[in-house]
Simulated assay, not measured.
Amino acid sequence: MIRHILLIKFLATADTAQIKHLQTLFEAMPQKVTGVLTVEWGVNNSPEYRNKGYTHSVLMTFADEAGRQNYLPHPEHLALKQVLRPLLDDIIVFDFQL
């Protein structure tokens, strides 16, 4: 399995409805893209205040490398990125193999 972590810093102009729509798109991926097993969406609530402005996270689990390779060019992923990009101030993407 492969874990795919996104740490997201939204622009100040991104509103709650836009972010909620993005969450819905992410959470639909396991039903739409073969190889995506799970998607977890979270909002930072750490009391340590070390998030450096990153407020949201996405944790995706791919079945294997083939699942990740299926997801990256998939039309559903490309459509999601079209919604995400205009809202982004910054993003960190980090993958690791279990």
Score class of each variant (00 low, 15 high):
Tyr54Phe: 15
Gln69His: 12
His74Asn: 08
Pro47Asp: 04
Leu72Arg: 15
Leu80Trp: 05
Thr34Asn: 10
Thr38Leu: 02
Leu98Val: 04
Leu7Asn: 11
Phe96Asn: 01
Leu88Met: 12
Pro86Asp: 05
Val36Gln: 12
Leu6Gln: 13
Val83Ile: 14
Lys20Arg: 15
Thr24Asn: 12
Ala66Asn: 12
Met29Thr: 11
Tyr54Arg: 11
Pro47Gln: 07
Trp41Ser: 02
Ile5Ala: 08
Glu65His: 07
Leu59Val: 14
Leu59Glu: 03
His74Gln: 05
Ser46Trp: 08
Lys81Ser: 09
Phe62Ala: 00
Val93Pro: 01
Leu80Thr: 14
Asp89Met: 00
Ala66Trp: 05
Val93Trp: 02
Asp89Asn: 04
Ala17Trp: 07
Ile92Arg: 13
Arg3Ile: 06
Asn70Ile: 04
Leu37Met: 11
Val39Tyr: 09
Asp95Thr: 03
Ile5Cys: 13
Ile19Trp: 13
His21Arg: 15
Thr61Ser: 03
Val33Lys: 14
Val83Met: 09
Thr55Ile: 04
Thr61Gln: 12
Ile19Asn: 12
Leu7Ile: 07
Arg68Asn: 05
His21Val: 01
Asn45Ser: 11
Leu98Ala: 04
Val33Asp: 09
Pro75Arg: 07
Gln82Cys: 02
Ile91Asp: 02
Gln31Phe: 02
Gly35Phe: 13
Tyr71Phe: 15
Arg85Ser: 03
Pro86Leu: 07
Lys9Phe: 07
Val33Arg: 14
Ala66Pro: 03
Gly35Pro: 10
Asp64Phe: 00
Ser46Ile: 08
Gln69Leu: 11
Ser46Gly: 12
Ala12Val: 03
Ala79Leu: 10
Leu72Ser: 06
Ser57Cys: 13
Gln69Val: 01
Ala17Arg: 14
Tyr49Phe: 12
His21Ile: 02
Gly35Met: 13
Asp15His: 15
Thr61Ala: 01
Leu37Phe: 01
Thr61Phe: 00
Leu25Pro: 06
Trp41Thr: 03
Phe94Ala: 01
Asp64Ile: 00
Val33Ile: 15
His56Val: 03
Thr55Asp: 05
Leu7Thr: 10
Ile91Met: 13
Arg68Asp: 00
Gly35Ser: 12
Leu22Lys: 13
Leu78Lys: 15
Gln82Val: 05
Leu25Cys: 14
Val83Asn: 13
Gln18Gly: 08
Ala17Ser: 14
Val39Lys: 11
Ile91Ser: 04
Gly42Ser: 14
Ser46Tyr: 07
His56Gly: 02
Ile19Cys: 10
Gly42Ile: 10
Asn44Thr: 08
Thr24Leu: 08
Pro47Phe: 05
Asp64Asn: 06
Pro75Cys: 00
Phe26Met: 10
Leu37Gly: 00
Phe96Met: 02
Pro86Lys: 11
Thr38Lys: 11
Leu84Asp: 09
Glu76Asn: 08
Leu84Lys: 11
Phe26Val: 07
Leu72Trp: 07
His4Ala: 02
Pro75Ala: 00
His4Asp: 03
Ala12Met: 03
Lys20Thr: 12
Asn44Gly: 08
Gly35Glu: 11
Lys20Glu: 11
Asp64Gly: 00
His21Leu: 09
Thr24Pro: 01
Asp95Tyr: 04
Gly53Ala: 06
Arg68His: 10
Val33Ser: 11
Gly53Ile: 07
Asn44Tyr: 07
Ala14His: 13
Ala28Glu: 09
Leu87Phe: 04
Gln69Ala: 05
